[in-house]
Write a protein that binds this DNA or RNA. Structure first.
Lengths: 195, 195
DNA sequence: GTAGAATGAACGGCGATTCAGTCAGAAACT
DNA sequence: AGTTTCTGACTGAATCGCCGTTCATTCTAC
């Protein structure tokens, strides 16, 4: 009678524990205690400690991309879509502080994650941005000569840095308030005419 | 007769080793072998393995900021300064592939580095960008109402993401070539009038 | 009664750190 | 100069604590 959402509970516990202590400083037994189970039980659902982190990242990232796709569907204008992406990016992180901590700080552990495992999920998010920008170029709203791939990375990087600063700065300000200026600066940078 | 630049040799070796295997996958003995010394010797110069990473980051970052400051001194125009910062950022990384690997991928290890130890050095770099932008506002070249702190983080984030993509994508393209578009998009985003 | 889920004590490997010993060269002495 | 003593940088095998993982046992639901 394997509990079908035990893995979810373990992942949820892992997010809290990793957020508190960092991946390498977290014991598997800490995750177990946080989840209210024995450490051995974790190995019924995950082969290794690494697998917990990889799975956590995969799932959260997939949810995220799905959410963004869903929200964008309601919007026609490519420029408004960009504004929505930025707003959503910041909103998700602000509403999930533990997840934000893990995604912005812990998940950067070299080799293992950005390379390999997560590459596919991250690139799905890049694709979303990339597609919107191309749409904007097609509609004549965005400079025809814009290097779209570069601009995509710039926007992601800009959002990511704002988020990281927010997390590291102990959330001393409101992240959501930064959404409007970030979108505006970026759009003015890529648009064919004024914004 | 302590060799006064033994620490430097150890750091140089550590950069090569960390670039190859990642921080957590590198043995102290690997660094020793790479440096051509015994593992115990490392402990004559560094108290712990962590200290090697922290020191390496501190020193390289300080050199970096000093270099940028020096190069900017030769330049009057704030907009040209921004272009120079971007060009330099990419040039340094492109010319030091091992350092790039360590800085972009390995040094992100949560807790320990971005928080604490390195905060001061990173913020010095932020200050450089911040000051140039304010100078631009003062000169009427940059929108008077620009949220300078946000724009600073955006530019840093944009450069950082381009660099990270370049490192993770096994350097499949020329990073330096991205400097011009990045600077142009950013400047168009923040300037009072066209660029 | 039994299958299979859960437990958690114990194992085993790993790797950072230590430290007793080596040795090259500097100083002291003849 | 030659000889002896001393110094402390350097070595690397051995130590030791840590924690991911295992598995013999217990529990639970049917």
């Amino acid at each position: 009678m394997r509990d079908p959402d035990k893995p979810q509970q373990i992942i949820a516990a892992a997010i809290r524990v990793f957020a508190r202590s960092g991946y390498y400083n977290s014991r598997v037994s800490d995750i177990a205690r946080e989840a209210g189970i024995a450490s051995g039980t974790i190995y019924l659902y995950f082969k290794t400690k690494d697998e917990i982190l990889v799975t956590l990242f995969r799932e959260k990232m997939a949810e995220w991309v799905a959410l963004v796709r869903r929200e964008l569907a309601a919007e026609r204008n490519p420029l408004a879509k960009i504004r929505k992406i930025v707003a959503l990016h910041f909103k998700v992180l602000e509403e999930n502080p533990d997840l934000a901590e893990v995604v912005q700080v812990e998940l950067r552990q070299g080799q293992k994650f950005f390379r390999g495992a997560s590459a596919h999920e991250v690139s799905a998010y890049f694709d979303v941005i990339n597609d919107v920008l191309e749409e904007g170029v097609g509609a004549g709203l965005i400079r025809r000569d814009l290097p779209v791939k570069v601009a995509t990375k710039m926007l992601f990087g800009a959002m990511d840095q704002l988020a990281t600063s927010w997390v590291l700065g102990k959330r001393g300000y409101c992240l959501t308030e930064a959404a409007e200026p970030v979108a505006t600066i970026f759009l003015q940078g890529v648009c064919a005419h004024g914004v």
